[in-house]
Amino acid sequence: MAEHVILFAGPMGAGKTTAIESLSEIETIRTEANNTDRETADKDTTTVALDYGEITVGDEDKVRLYGVPGQRRFNFMWTILKERAVGLVLLVNNDAADPIQELADFLDEFGDLHEKGGVVVCVTRSDVATSPHIDQYAEKIREVLPGRMIPVFTADARNTDQMRTCLMSLIANIEMTAMIAASQERAA
């Protein structure tokens, strides 16, 4: 039975906790505290350690879903959780003050997960803010991580089917990366 550890990262308010809630087959573990930083995001609570959920893919592949806190002051949790991860779902809310810069910042922090398995970008709240367009995200990805194949989706974090599409795309990338690495090892 294969196990994948997938991180859900992105700025505060991007929908990481909601996305894991949508996907998980088990009762999720949440570590939320009352949000006192209303200037950054106008929401009642914020994740201060991690979110955790699980989903089975195929017959028996277990995928462990970890959500990291969105605020940089919790970046020690980013380091801890990144260690075991093989893939990243990067969520960016389109209604953020500067979503393209948020994308660049988080790719800078977590982009190396592409080499370990794969990365997908999931743009949320595009129904609330219609710009920037998805092409602008793709352009920024090409600029920050040139030559990497990183799919970009728009999705509603509350929608299980949409989030599952993002996740399955990531898992396909991870498995392809593993196959390429194995064939290169055999050839060496």
Binding site: A33, N34, N35, T36, V48, A49, R73, F74, F76, M77
Partner: peptide, 28 residues
């Protein structure tokens, strides 16, 4: 609860902020 330092004894500013964040995560 969400990891902002209110007041500290000992430590420097950077450490105080970091400990506040880590303690918040631990508590949660």
């Amino acid at each position: 609860d969400d990891g902002f330092e209110v007041a500290s004894f000992g430590g420097d500013d950077k450490q105080n902020r970091r400990v506040a964040s880590m303690a918040s995560s631990m508590q949660a």
